[in-house]
């Protein structure tokens, strides 16, 4: 990599203390996001994707580790400097219903960031800027006098995107930003995000549980399981030749739009284990079809195998067996 990455997450851990013990939401997470790229973050519910997105923006305080933003560790920043830095990074939320204040008109929602950072000049100039933003995200300028409840889910999500873009950030976390929407609307919003990223040269962390969406949108993918990064590499490579049994399972769980396509499906059994007491060794061993005794004892390091990074003792075997079918054969 010639350029230093815009975001680099180093040894990030997050534990939530509870009465029953610590919830291990994130364990020693390492990856980076090159400037101008879109990185997908995938995993089941409860794998720590959302917590990771929040920790990178320091909306949740991580327990350990560093988050370097353009060479600066944002976890060290005093509150005032953090607030100033927030101008450069934004988030688009999953739920378009709870993410917009029901008492505010759209204009107030969108210009709030401008006011907080003293951008956008006079009230009239801000108004024009809001109008331009609304048109840029596919709404109309006169929508600014409406309240959030007067819009459909897709339109609300567009308002949320306009709010994030208003202060012209360099980096955006899109936290399952399309999963609450209808499929037809999902495609529109995905295309909008893609266009905006290109037009504004944005860097994005795209959180999703749907691998097909990530394949469409992202340059790189990070696969998470129970707070650990299990595989990280270019989207094309990870999709065509997964090296972790969990990635294999996720890929084979994705629906294919052909009812007659016969496939060996490698369906995972059981639920994701409780992060209150994560399994020993490799956290995936309780559900892994390729589990051997060694997996119970030793935690696999994230290592380079076949052009990507993977945390599996048997990554070479997974690669040799080929996508989807390999893991399924042993079930």
């Amino acid at each position: 990599m010639e350029h230093p990455p815009l975001i680099s997450v180093e040894g990030l851990s997050k534990r939530f203390p509870t009465r029953a013990g610590d919830v291990h939401a994130l364990e020693d997470v390492n990856f980076s996001i090159p400037r101008g790229s879109i990185v997908g973050l995938v995993g089941e519910s409860g794998s720590g994707k959302t917590t990771l997105g929040r920790c990178i923006l320091r909306l949740v305080e991580p327990s350990e580790g560093r988050v370097m933003f353009d060479g600066q560790n944002i976890l060290d920043l005093p509150p005032k400097e953090l607030r100033a830095l927030r101008r450069r990074m934004q988030i688009i939320f999953q739920d378009p219903f709870s993410s917009l204040n029901p008492r505010m008109r759209v204009r107030t929602i969108i210009e709030e960031g401008l006011i907080a950072h003293r951008l956008g000049g006079t009230s009239r100039e801000r108004r024009d800027r809001v109008a331009t933003l609304l048109e840029e995200v596919g709404l109309q300028a006169d929508h600014m006098t409406r309240f959030a409840h007067e819009f459909s889910g897709g339109q609300r999500q567009r308002v949320g995107i306009a709010r994030a873009l208003a202060i012209e950030p360099e980096f955006i976390v899109a936290d399952e930003s399309v999963s609450a929407l209808d499929v037809s609307v999902q495609a529109q919003i995905l295309n909008l995000l893609l266009d905006l990223c290109e037009a504004r040269n944005l860097t994005m962390l795209f959180i999703a549980h749907d691998l097909s969406v990530v394949e469409y949108l992202c340059d790189q993918v990070v696969v998470m399981y129970l707070g650990h990064v299990v595989e990280n590499g270019s989207t094309a490579l990870v999709h065509s030749q997964p090296a972790h049994p969990y990635t294999t399972a996720l890929l084979s769980a994705a629906p294919v739009p052909d009812p007659f396509a016969g496939r060996d499906r490698n369906i995972l059994k059981g639920e994701i284990p409780s992060p209150l007491s994560p399994p020993s060794g490799c956290v995936f061993h309780t559900r892994c079809p390729l589990m051997v005794e060694h997996c119970r004892q030793a935690v696999p390091e994230l290592r380079a195998v076949g052009g990507r990074r993977v945390a599996c003792h048997r990554a070479e075997d997974v690669l040799a067996m080929g996508p989807a079918t390999g893991a399924a054969a042993t079930l």
């Binding site: 909306l59 939320f93 709870s98 709030e112 950072h117």
Partner: peptide, 19 residues
């Protein structure tokens, strides 16, 4: 979420409390 959104935008705490 809209309170979190306001924090992410860098809105000051008094303003979050009121608005």
């Amino acid at each position: 979420t809209y309170v979190e959104a306001a924090r992410a935008l860098g809105v000051s705490t008094p303003r979050i409390l009121f608005h």
